[in-house]
Design a binder for these strands. Structure first.
Length: 568
RNA sequence: CGGGGCGUAGCGCAGACCGGUAGCGCACUCGCUUGGGGUGCGAGUGGUCGUGGGUUCAAAUCCCGCCGCCCCGACCA
């Protein structure tokens, strides 16, 4: 392929809109261009990369027995109303009406559509198990699209859905997909880690996220170096911590004036204490009933855990009026002392505090030197927060480390959540009607490419792994007075293409420096430099992008050498 | 949605405080030059200054509204 015939608009300057490496380099290397916030056009080079990732996904999924289908992007509201997600999905769902004012949406995911298909077409246990996947553009009206392809409103996703006769079958399907994902991300050359995850909006019973380790990752992962436990910080289970090292003796509690100091920062700054010495009291409405939730000032509540502990189906923070009615104080001064009629749950770490600050349940008042067990007694201690570095591993009690990751894949065991609501059933061997067990599985195609750049780049640009590189080889034709360069380039291009090596020839009338810099920026793994100087000695140069290693060799050696390198 | 920042040529920016009819670098076109790490010189092309209104003899510049984009945060009492 000739570079002069492809639109590869490289940029010398960093575009102002891009903050992170992969976004910047995708724009600079001419892979993508933005159309609107979170919506991009894939240029020829970018599209080739996307197709490479898709191909790997296809091959591995086909190998695992999944079958490819293609569902519509637009789906009718009725299907979403059946599962309740028409309302539950909220503003993230792109909605539209047709000319008859009927409601539709642009698919953010396809559980409803595929389950509808399966309930119509699958009757018998003989047709199961089945696993359907598609690679398709998805739409989610994200609250804040960012980082180029990392979090777009329109993006390409591989989504798959498994259907089994029972729980055991579903577990087997899940395991197969998990294994396929490991193969896929390994082939993409990523440093990744499967971690235990929460099930979020999709719902279901168990789930793993495939995280590419990178500092710019939007997700926190708690990892244990001692026993290999890894989980999303939202998911990681935390046990009651070690009993407190008896550092200080409990003093008598006092009510002090904290005029106007409502937030954790304000109060601790005013009292000159660390946030870890404060207990914050959050008032929630769990299915309409007020609950006080106690956490250390420096900890963040995890509402998913809280919901489980409370056994609540609906959980919202109480409005200021309710808080005032309950505590007798404006928002900012709630505390557990004297809240006798209200259920109080506290995070495990609260139990370990001595001489803590708590709200006074009166305007501009806080208690200092309050101690749990003596001054207030929660109804229950539980795990209510996200994991932090230093917390104990739930498996082996060694300290956890929190690292950042990019979620490129997610596998869920759904159970019968959708099949029950949508009545997707089959007849078993006894002729009994049974509900189908489901699983669902996603991979962000563009995000996988972006994650690869985050892990594979240097100051000059991208360094693609061979498996997803837009081309295998970038052949740079330098100045050519004699015509020899052109002749060699044409000959080599032909030989390489015949050998199945994908080659991009930089045949532009540009200075050598421009070509070298653009080639480094684009990041094709091998460069062949052909110039008159080298040819005078019967040689061309082969450069490995990652290491910069240059090998001089005769033109006739190029094809065999590359074939060998590319097979590795 | 809350906070902050920004919209001036394809890209990166100056001009704005102090109103006088738009500029720099890169890119692009043409000519010469150069030809192994973003050559050099010259001549050009390209902008309703995001948008609507207002103030003024005069608005990129001052005032108000709207739109878009980027960053941070988002029930944390």
């Amino acid at each position: 392929m000739r570079q002069s015939r492809l639109l590869i608009p490289t940029l010398r300057d960093d575009p102002g809109e891009a903050e992170i490496v992969s976004h910047r380099l995708m724009l600079r290397a001419g892979l993508i261009r933005k159309v609107a916030a979170g919506i991009y056009t894939y240029l020829p080079l970018g599209l080739r990369i996307i197709r490479k990732v898709e191909q790997i996904v296809r091959e591995e999924l086909n190998k695992s027995g999944a079958q490819e289908v293609l569902m519509p992007i637009v789906s009718p509201a009725e299907l979403w109303q059946e599962t309740g997600r028409w309302d539950f999905y909220g503003k993230e769902l792109f909605r539209l009406k047709d000319r008859h004012e009927r409601d539709f949406c642009l698919g953010p995911t396809h559980e409803e559509v595929i389950t509808d298909l399966v309930r119509r077409e699958v009757r018998s246990y003989r047709q199961l198990p089945a696993n359907f996947y598609q690679i398709q553009t998805k739409f989610r009206d994200e609250i804040r699209p960012r980082f180029g392809l990392m979090r777009g409103r329109e993006f390409i996703m591989k989504d798959a859905y498994s259907f089994d006769v029972d729980e055991a079958g579903a577990t087997e399907s899940y395991r197969k997909m998990y294994d396929a994902y490991v193969s896929i991300f390994t082939r993409c050359g990523l440093n990744f880690r499967p971690v235990e995850a929460d099930t979020g909006l999709i719902g279901g019973t168990s789930s793993h996220e495939f995280m590419v380790l990178a500092d710019i990752g939007e997700e926190g992962i708690a990892v244990c170096d001692a026993c290999n436990y890894a989980a999303n910080v939202e998911r990681a289970e935390l046990n009651a911590g070690p009993p407190p090292a008896a550092s200080e003796s409990a003093r008598v509690k006092q009510l002090v004036s904290t005029p106007g100091h409502k937030t954790v920062e304000d109060v601790t700054a005013f009292l000159n204490l660390p946030a870890a010495k404060l207990v914050k009291t959050l008032i929630y409405l769990a299915d309409g009933k007020a609950v006080a939730v106690l956490l250390r000032g420096d900890h963040a509540v995890n509402e998913i855990k809280l919901k489980k502990v409370l056994g609540a189906t609906e959980l919202v923070m109480a409005d200021p009026a309710t808080v005032e009615k309950l505590t007798g104080a404006p928002v900012g001064f709630a505390g557990p002392i004297g809240l006798s009629d209200t259920r109080i749950v506290a995070d495990f770490e609260v139990k370990n505090l001595v001489n803590a600050v708590v709200g006074g349940n009166a305007a501009d008042r806080h208690w200092v030197d309050a101690s749990p067990g003596r001054d207030f007694n929660p109804d229950q201690y539980a795990d209510l927060r996200n994991a932090l570095t230093g917390d104990q591993c739930p498996r082996c009690s060694q300290p956890l480390r929190v690292v950042r990751g990019i979620e490129v894949g997610h596998v869920f065991k759904l159970g019968t959540k959708y099949s029950e609501k949508m009545k997707a059933t089959y007849l078993d061997q006894q002729g009994q009607e049974k509900t189908i067990f489901m699983g669902c599985y996603g991979i962000g195609i563009g995000r996988t490419a972006a994650a690869s750049i985050e892990q594979n780049h240097d100051a000059k640009g991208i360094i693609w792994p061979v498996s997803i590189a837009p081309f295998h080889v970038h052949m740079l034709a330098l100045a050519d007075k004699s015509g020899k360069v052109q002749a060699t380039v044409t000959e080599l291009e032909e030989q390489l293409e015949q050998a199945g090596v994908e080659v991009l020839v930089d045949d532009r009338d540009e200075r050598p420096g421009v070509k070298f810099n653009d080639a480094d920026l684009i990041g094709i793994p091998y460069h062949i430099v052909i110039g008159e100087k080298g040819l005078a000695q019967g040689q061309v140069e082969l450069k490995e992008r990652r290491t910069g290693t240059v090998t001089k060799l005769a033109p006739s050696e190029v094809v065999p050498r590359l074939k060998k390198l590319l097979i590795q």
